[in-house]
Design a protein around this nucleic acid. Sequence first.
DNA 1: AACCAGGGAGCGT
DNA 2: ACGCTCCATGGT
Length: 296
Amino acid sequence: MASRDEIILTTSEYDLDATLACGQAFGWERDSDGWTGVIQGRWVRLASVADGIKVHLAETSRDLVWLSGYLRTNVNIREVVATFPKDDEHLRDAVRMCAGLRLVRQDPWECLASFILSSTKQIVQIRQIVRALCERYGTAVVIPRGEASRFSFPTATQLAALSETDLRACKMGFRAPYLLAAARCVTSGEINLESVGSMKLSQAREELMKLDGVGEKIADCVLLFAYGFPTAFPVDVWVRRVLSQFYFRGRNVKPDRLRRFIERHFGPNAGYAQQYLFHHVRLTSVKKVSREQTEI
DNA sequence: AACCAGGGAGCGT
DNA sequence: ACGCTCCATGGT
């Protein structure tokens, strides 16, 4: 049968907006027709519909495993949430407020590179840097007639051939040497990103942290957002703040103690819990700021 | 205009 | 182990 370029990916309890805008992936662009992005070199536009996600492709595709694998539409989010600690009302509130927020499964190199660029940057800026990087050094993908051109995220090999000055043209500042060195480590085989996925969590974290510019937080982001380690738990300023507020009466908690609390408290899907807490605190914080501004 | 951003390296204690 | 400063850049 003739395949069409528009399909429905059936799923439920999937908040596409929250999922693609929450700061786990930086390559998605929203317009009035939905979210446009590139997955494994394929242009795709996604939009929420009643029974799932409407998928618009540039080229026909014999199956959508590459897409359902990325979006993790087969994950039963209720089963995930059911593993959260029962007596944690803060987490329950966060889940309720962020219903439908999901974790996606990104390409390891793209995720690693993006989060190397993320340090001390706001999410909007990270998106800008990533876009510049794709447009300058990525590869144009096939797009439907009339659509704006899009580029895949540059491979490690593509970036390894560049200079630090080339990268700085994308406004990444002091992160440029980190990204360049990482690209060259991956290209030379000094680090094997594929092998990281089969390691134990602690070993995988150590492996990623061998890279200059990759500390615990960035390593955990890659382990959670690309490799799908379910207990990886990135702790950034927002998460530190919300954990302190919810579980330590707002006290400043030392890193070691915080790490032990996380491992004991959140259970086998701690990474999802982290994302709910992160998204929740950012939503409430942004709301507070805009309210302050309108009241003045 | 000043402040701060999904951090990390390189120090010193 | 913790705490501090610096790093480059731009958005609110």
